[in-house]
Design a protein around this nucleic acid. Sequence first.
DNA 1: AACCTTTGGTTTGAATAATGAACCGCACAC
DNA 2: GTGTGCGGTTCATTATTCAAACCAAAGGTT
Lengths: 267, 267
Amino acid sequence: MGTVSKALSLLGFFSRDRQEIGLSEMTRLTGLNKATVFRLLTELAENGFVEQVGSGRAYRLGPVFLRLASLREAAVPMREMAQQVLDRLSAATGETTHMSILQGDQLCTLAYSYSVQHGTRVTMDDAEVITFHSTSSGLAVLAHSDTAFVTQVLAQPLERRTPMSVTDPEVILGQLEDVRRSGIAENVSGFEEDVHSHAAPVFDAQQRCYGAVAVAAPVARMSDALRAVIRAEVPRAALEMTRLLGGFPPASFKTKFETMPGHAPAA
Amino acid sequence: MGTVSKALSLLGFFSRDRQEIGLSEMTRLTGLNKATVFRLLTELAENGFVEQVGSGRAYRLGPVFLRLASLREAAVPMREMAQQVLDRLSAATGETTHMSILQGDQLCTLAYSYSVQHGTRVTMDDAEVITFHSTSSGLAVLAHSDTAFVTQVLAQPLERRTPMSVTDPEVILGQLEDVRRSGIAENVSGFEEDVHSHAAPVFDAQQRCYGAVAVAAPVARMSDALRAVIRAEVPRAALEMTRLLGGFPPASFKTKFETMPGHAPAA
DNA sequence: AACCTTTGGTTTGAATAATGAACCGCACAC
DNA sequence: GTGTGCGGTTCATTATTCAAACCAAAGGTT
């Protein structure tokens, strides 16, 4: 791994729960040398990628990201497009919808949309990193990724987020088969309690799966009728997203689902 | 300059007008070796900081910035706070308002707000880099920066954006004196034609000036009455911004303006 | 007050990575 | 077919990283 990758990996440790990180903590997290981490952080700070919080010594993300995110969105209005699709999907299903995309070997939330139809809803965090093994989005992506990536993900320790989380790699591999067969991933309370979610994959121009569109409903509200609506709408939205972002599904996926009327998969 | 700084400086060349940059172009822009630039870009790409556009070989900013900008905004809701202040300032003045902040040695637009009061208005670009010498915001920041930075900025070639642009360093130094005396920077048609702008400085917790709040009106609409309103409101908004973002003005600035009723400066 | 631990930051030669000039294959223009 | 510019690659030289110390300061405990 090169110097730049090391420096950039530092940034990956910031999260919603870890907005400020000290030098020592960072050395522990990265496993790099303290002197190196210090130099990297100093260099990042010189360029505005991190900054030291007022009084103390801890580092946090710098202001350049506001500018660079603006420019990224100007070049590729991914988030804006995702928002439109999700808003429609939320309206159609009456539930919370979200889209997640692969960033390196992490899956994070790109955008989400709430429905005003019900008083209760599943709530989302912006830019949250979600697990592969215990979310419908994660399973949807894994099911359409190459086996090398799948084995790499499943080889790592799989967090038991809730009592309902499935953490046995063998069982998960079986689930992926189902996902490929139906075109839809489903998960109940694996990531957050009382959340029943469905997801469908989104592909890029090289026909690689790099994200998923999902609908998340409270378990209590999941009925046969709602489930039917979601299973009809999620693949439609995912395909629309794929098209909007300039990608298209691989032949294997396309022939199975896309040629059907309304793109609805067999239940 | 270290490896990381070189890599990060590459990102600085992307802009609204330059969303995609090829390898050769990048080597020319940076002055670095082509092999080095290639390696840096490859490493940036591995981490999602740049990506290669579908068919060709040109690079553009990657998707990680959406995530990191979200996290930055979660840690320091600068943009959100700025938006609130600007919305009020636009309502009070009936004109377009914006805030710009220093990023390294560049001044870029952080946020802006339009007023619905008039059919015509000055329009803004998101994340635009603006010049120091031909904008009121730039002059406001320079006027409250240390002389080393001012001489560095004025030593570089000063672009003549419009026929009205002032590009003589001596004249600009004189303008800065006026800005310090009045607490407000003013510029007519220096950056864009037919735009009359006023700006006031924003300070951080170390009492360093790192940005400015500005009101930009069409030249044709600038009356004595409007000018009086703007010169009353801009410093007020700038001070509010300073406070909101956890900073405070240096003693020299504070004693001159802040102790006055309504924080309005002497005309 | 004395002691211990942890923090951010700095210094050292041996190991490891980055650098720069030349080079390759390719497309396109003439 | 020859010249030019492109993205990408090679390899000896050169700069950076590593590990293991160290320092000063802050906070906690006794």
